[in-house]
Write a protein that binds this DNA or RNA. Structure first.
Lengths: 214, 214
DNA sequence: AACTAACTTTACTCATGAGTCAAGTTTCAT
DNA sequence: ATGAAACTTGACTCATGAGTAAAGTTAGTT
């Protein structure tokens, strides 16, 4: 802590009153998540020690354990956040689109915006295999449900004619590949703005890369 | 080793004469790679111990170290194989296509076929962050060159009119997302054949998912 | 001021897993 | 058969890093 103030709280989010002590614990928990997300996405889950996370926050390791019981639960948190995001995007799509095509676009746009905002969940490929069996099962189940939701949308577009006839499962894989890979390469300080990325990707999702046939 | 034969060689590949001892060392090295690839892709690099790899081959851990100096060099091997694949696909594209569009399709087809054959490199997302700095640098350099190659192809298609006008960097990311994610989800015993996958994906790359405008 | 509850830290423990060593074992040439 | 080279193994070492215990510190209360 640089400055000696009367009520010195942790670094804290810029968007919360640092003098408000009421939800201190919750805000510190969030800070741990942010620090871990940053490190995990840069170096990977296994190449980041809890000491690293602690150092990032200028705090000691045991302090972290006041907010998370295990390192794996921290990882679990990221999985859950990512899944929340996916589900939210699907729910939004249902209300925002009138046919399969519109719903698919809405879902992709929403998901990309969440991912690119950084505000959203986390910016790294969550490592399912490092979760304890029970948590992994929960993640896989939710994940499958989300895939099924995307597939339903594609099937709907398939029926109502707004999307071309194609294997809905492969269409889902195609779309989720692109969405899932974004956290791998996206850097907020990169050359392309989130808006540019979203626009370009939505265009490619819809009409591909080939020259339009008139 | 189940059966007591006079010349008992390791499990060995089905496509090589197990009585030929000339290149035994090289074939065993390959066997180690195959075993590791299988485990790494199923459980991840960090969740697989060298003892696991040894057990998969019914061999002891020190034996592995006759074929690889460190676990990280084993990982490096996979990276190199994947990069070889990417470069081969690019080189092939140059000879197989007359314009940007054709080259892009050739490159994608070739890369997917390599990945899906399983014969090719490896079926897991190679973890760059776990490589020692020097090896990581080599991988990143080659990787960047491959990306640049894809971008060149898209730019060519951009100029010659065979591809639509779009940001070549974002086009590259879009395409490589899909290609890179395949090893994550593909299982040889899955419902879709490699041919189906290649066909469907090439179609989506070219004209997207939306209904064609007549 | 004195007390308490909450939080933080230093200094551990302990399991895991990479890599090694020295002692077998097998293969092949003479 | 015998000796040497190559290969394999059980039994280690040693570093790393997750998680903990107990003592110390701080904030807020009476």
């Amino acid at each position: 802590m640089a400055v000696a103030g009367k009520s010195q709280t942790k670094p804290a989010a810029a968007d919360s009153d640092p003098f408000d002590r009421s939800d201190l614990k919750e805000r510190r928990r969030k800070a741990v998540i942010r620090a871990a997300a940053s490190l995990f996405s840069r170096k990977g889950f296994h190449n980041t020690s809890m000491d690293d996370v602690a150092a990032e926050l200028s705090v000691s390791k045991p302090t972290l354990y006041n907010y998370f019981p295990t390192k794996q639960k921290l990882l679990y948190e990221f999985h859950m956040a990512a899944l929340d995001d996916g589900e939210a995007a699907l729910a939004y799509a249902q209300s925002a689109g009138k046919n399969g095509h519109q719903k698919l676009v809405a879902m992709c746009r929403r998901n990309m915006e969440d991912t690119l905002s950084g505000q959203g969940p986390c910016a790294f490929v969550a490592d399912v295999d490092s979760l304890p069996a029970e948590d992994r099962a929960k993640v896989v189940t939710r994940r499958d449900r989300i895939s099924a939701g995307v597939r339903d949308i594609i099937e709907e577009g398939n029926r109502d004619g707004s999307l071309k006839k194609l294997d809905p499962s492969l269409g889902t894989l195609f779309v989720t590949s692109v969405l899932n890979w974004i956290p791998v390469w996206y850097r907020p300080d990169g050359e392309r703005s989130p808006e540019e990325i979203v626009t370009a990707f939505l265009d490619m999702f819809q009409t591909g890369l080939a020259r339009k046939r008139i």
